[in-house]
Amino acid sequence: MEHAAAGSGHLETSTGLDNRKLLMWLFLGSECLFFGSLIAAYLLYRDRSLGPPFPSDRVFNGVHYEGLFDIPFTSVSAFVLLMSSVTMVLALAAIQRGNRRSMQVWLLTTALLGTLFVSGQAYEFTVFHREGLSLGSNLFGTTFFVLTGFHGAHVTIGVLILLSLLAMSFQGRIQQKDSLNVELAGLYWHFVDVVWIVIFTLVYLIQP
């Protein structure tokens, strides 16, 4: 966590925006292109797999194949991630009020919800793998695992950041005046959450 300006210490910045916050916004802008490129590859290759398994029910060469997606299950895990954004907001509000105890509770809840989401994804991957889907099985396997895996890695990193903040706050290093740390983690967390809404809609819900 980089601290502001060399030398100019606690001076105002030219735009009035905090350096680190601006950095985070730029980083997230750049991340949009990362996810955008991966999602584009998924959409380009949707329905172009030369063989099973398929994401949704389908007849292929006269044989009926059941789709892999379990929409109710994934909806629940999407809901879990969505809720974690709410708890993240509560964590930030708590530290901005100066309530460290409450922030710790909400940070921990957010991290647990995030872990729950990633576990759900691990479970989903295992099930799909057992059904014969792998990176090399077909285009669906390739694009699905790389896109959702990349997102899962982001959630995992987010959980690590939240736990690091929690550890720092137990050392007394996150006080009310340091609420920006929590705010930045929150920005990242909400972004990853929003990306999941996009992926969930485009990949799971809208089937051709």
Binding site: L26, G29, S30, E31, L33, F34, S37, L38, A41, S134, L135, G136, N138, L139, G141, T142, T143, F145, V146
Partner: peptide
């Protein structure tokens, strides 16, 4: 910051093709 992500994803996909048998 906007162009490098595009090539990085392409290289990432290439890496998956070569190392993990993906099909991009």
């Amino acid at each position: 910051i906007f162009a490098m992500p595009v090539i990085t994803v392409a290289l990432f996909e290439l890496m998956f093709d070569r190392l993990f048998n993906a099909n991009f």
